[in-house]
């Protein structure tokens, strides 16, 4: 045994887990799903675009909750800040280029992430959750009161984005917005794949499991988490800006406790700590909500609740997490 290890010690320690092939596969999956969505629901592209904007919010939540273990029920603050930043840029400053609006959303979201991170990361566990709830109410109320900028409870209307690249106008069927959303989601998704498996991503996973161990290695959990919060804010900001560009209105609901809580439900539904889990949860929740609320406008929430209970009881790792685990086990058994 000892001789075997010494001999092996000469050979380089390489791992088979290189990500490029899987990255391309992930990109392909997103694009194929986008094409299927386009073909299946050509008259409902607005819903699909909204799903993608919310998926960005849920991905953003996954970064801090799934990868870092931060408990929050106020994550829509980041999404709504991005949406308002893009909307205010367009309405008050005449910045109507969609890409610049997204840039405004990224800045707004990142700033909100910084503010929320500084406050929320001071506490742990239940107090942390309470702080996050307080924050989302503060953000909501601030947007409500600053009505000359935000339109208050009427919402910020009159957002008229320019044609994308000066060529593709935002049409009534939402085709431009749809393609725009697919491209944004794909770019962010690939970016996040890089981040979560980078040394920084690994550090955050370590912090989630045992922050004291990271300290004993000379790492600062607070700085790493704050950095992740800012990244998370930028991602949510993209989602918010996308929502502003595609719907051409920003409402107070984008800064609401309800949206925060729903995004957490979607994340748990799909599976925390996995980017595909976040996207899966969003798609399933929103399509289910759309179908069930059309079929039964009065009791649809009951059915959403029942779905959630079923998932939490029988697939505690979420829909994607459970499927991935079963597949991995089967692959392991096949070896």
């Amino acid at each position: 045994m000892t001789t075997a290890t010494t001999n092996q010690a000469e050979a380089p320690l390489l791992s088979g887990r290189h990500g490029l092939g899987r990255d391309l596969a992930a990109l392909a999956v997103i694009l194929v799903l986008a094409v299927i969505g386009y073909l299946l629901f050509p008259n409902n592209l607005a819903l699909l675009t909204r799903i993608m904007a919310i998926a960005l919010l849920v991905l953003s939540l996954d970064l801090v909750t799934g990868y870092c273990g931060v408990a929050t029920l106020g994550h829509a603050a980041l999404f709504g800040s991005g949406a308002y930043a893009a909307g205010i840029a367009a309405v008050h400053f005449g910045i109507t280029d969609p890409l610049l609006m997204v840039a405004a959303g990224i800045i707004g979201g990142a700033l909100a992430g910084l503010v929320c991170g500084v406050v929320i990361l001071r506490a742990h566990g239940l107090p942390q959750l309470v702080l996050s709830i307080a924050l989302i109410h503060l953000f909501h109320e601030f947007a409500n009161k600053a009505s000359s900028w935000t339109g208050g409870s009427d919402g910020l209307a009159g957002i008229a984005p320019d044609p994308l690249f000066g060529i593709f106008a935002y049409d009534l069927w939402g085709r431009t917005a749809y393609v725009f959303a697919v491209v944004l989601l794909a770019i962010v998704f690939m970016f996040l794949r890089l981040v979560v498996r980078s040394p920084f991503g690994m550090l955050c996973r370590g912090i989630k499991e045992d922050p004291i161990r990271i300290q004993a290695m000379g790492g600062s959990p607070t700085i790493a988490l704050l950095k992740m919060y800012v990244i998370s804010g930028a991602v949510a900001g993209v989602g918010g800006a996308l929502n502003a560009v595609s719907t051409q209105v920003v409402g107070l609901d984008s800064l609401s406790f309800t949206l925060s809580a729903e995004s957490l439900v979607m994340l748990v539904l799909g599976g925390t700590g996995s980017l595909f889990g976040a996207v899966t949860g969003t798609i399933v929740f929103m399509l289910f909500e759309d179908l069930v609320s059309a079929a039964n406008p009065f009791h649809w929430l009951t059915m959403v609740g029942a779905l959630l209970i079923a998932v939490v009881l029988f697939a505690p790792k979420g829909l994607y997490g459970t499927v991935a685990e079963v597949l991995a086990r089967r692959r392991g058994a096949g070896r």
Binding site: T5, P12, L13, H18, S198, P199, G201, I223
Partner: peptide, 23 residues
């Protein structure tokens, strides 16, 4: 450790040191 890009499993310098220590 704060680097946001690159996978250290493919950083030859780091992995060489890892190999020595683990070995």
């Amino acid at each position: 450790a704060g680097r946001m890009f690159g996978n250290f499993l493919s950083m030859p310098g780091v992995m060489a040191e890892v190999g020595v220590l683990i070995g």
